[in-house]
Design a binder for these strands. Sequence first.
RNA 1: CGGGGUAUAGCGUAGUCCGGCUAUCGCGCCUGCUUUGGGAGCAGGAGGUCGCAGGUUCAAAUCCUGCUACCCCGACCA
Length: 574
Amino acid sequence: MKLSKLFLFTTKEFPKDAEIISDKYLRKSNLLVKSHSGFFYYSPLLTRSLHKIRAIIDKEMERAGAQEVLMPILMKKELWEESGRWDNYINAKIMFHLRNRKDVEMCLGPTHEEAFTDFVRRFITSYKQLPIILYQQNTKFRDEIRPRFGLMRTSEFIMKDAYSFDYNQAGLDAAYQTMRAAYKRIFDTIGLHYIIVQADSGAIGGSGSEEFMVTADSGEDTILYCDDCDYAANVEKAESLLDTVIYEETGTAIQKLHTPDIKSVEELVEFTKIPNNQMIKTIIFKMIYEDREKFVAVLMRGDLEINEIKLQNLYDCLEVKKASEEEVVTLTKAQVGFAGPFNLNPEIELIGDHSIKSVKYFLCGLNTTDYHYINVCFGRDIAMPKTYELKLAREHDLCPRCGKQRLKQKMGIEVGHIFKLGTKYSEKMNALILDEAGNKVPMKMGCYGIGTSRIISAAIEQHHDDKGIIWPIAIAPYHITIIPTIDKPGVIIDKAEEIYNKLNDNGFEVLFDDRGVSFGFKMKDAELIGIPYIVVFGKKTVDGLCELTIRKTNQTIEMGIDKLQDFLRDSLNK
RNA sequence: CGGGGUAUAGCGUAGUCCGGCUAUCGCGCCUGCUUUGGGAGCAGGAGGUCGCAGGUUCAAAUCCUGCUACCCCGACCA
């Protein structure tokens, strides 16, 4: 491709509203152009990179035995009501939906479990027809509350989603492992550094799930991991062990303490000099179900935070919200900051985190404004409520698997997520088969997603320098760009074009910068758009020499023009 | 959804507080000449419903009211 013909319009200035480096470079180069909030135009170069990512995924899906299909983007409400997710997604306000002229309500697919399950159940009736894995790479829509970070979080994006169907757990486990291995090959081929972490399965549902996280400071997800034993988890899911705290057996009796307008744990520590791990805070939550609401008070050791996702999973509700100030006042008859396990409104269920079990002689609220109890003991002063794992794991906590090493923290970009769905959809949608014994059983499903378009951002977050993008070879839009230093008719331009034609004819992916702009301009562009090999034809062309710069290392090699093709072939085949 | 902010040429902006001449500057664009090893120089030129609608005024980019879009923080979210 000649650059004089290429639809490429780089700028000198960074876009004003870009926050992360991938978005800055993508939009400075206009490889990516914002249409409106959450929606983008992809330029020709970026589209080439996208196709390369798609092709790598296709190849590995084929190898893993998955078959490509296409599902409708617009789906009927009825299909989503079968799985029970219509209300879920509408309630969460993350789904675009509309009506056609006949007033049939439809949604723009945010994910396709329902469609694939419907497709498969029409034809699969026997265990003998299984296993099956189907996938598509299609446009998805999510009405993001706040699209941001360029291609990282958009309302319209391209995703690869695969679905496996089996008749027993062993089959599902095997499909899951097959896809997991395929994912590793995909991200290795593209050239991304990633961590596989345990994850919460969120609105998709199901049992086990793991996420593939591209590590980058700009990532939106927090990962906790152990260097010793391979434990790694999304903070949403992560567990941890706490250091043992020794509480002195003072035998001191429970006592009511006047704490005027002192509400937060920090203020109480300041006021009472009692350490925060000897306090128990009470947070009131509102669990929202389809048809009802329920209030729950959670007791948590004062130095720890509550993981609301764990809470939501425990109660299996649509949404968990902190109770509003008005609700707290109405329910506890006290100002916010004085809730506690004592004198609690019986409408509120009381539970605790495991961390409260060992705390003795602690401070807590009693639902009376401006007062707290001190020296409270479970068993002596009040019964211990049921406890669950509800705390937010932190960096420096002990690893829950090996118990020895401290957890470390990194930020990650979620580029892949694999789930064992089990029978969540097949049961509700009546996707049944006959097993060996002649019983009708729901199919065991798995689902496996890759953020095809998000990989572009993730790759640039990991591969760039102060000049621009450094595309990994596997997804570079072109591999080589040839730059003549002078555009006037003469030896330089003739030779450069001759080599360009030769490389092109021999199957190389090569650009030729034949624009009538200065040398510096061409170099800046080549670096910004991240072409792996830059070949300059200058004064020494008459001596049969050219210069090759390797974008990644910034290393420049002078070589005979006759040696160039072999050198490039060797380099690209590595 | 709450808080904060922005909207002037393709892009980035000055002017807005304190209303007043032909709306500023840079990049980009067009023509010509000179240039070409790190985003070229000179000369000339085109390009604007000042986000939209209404109001106040002799006079509105500027003041008032309403609306819309976009951005940031939070909440929220595969």
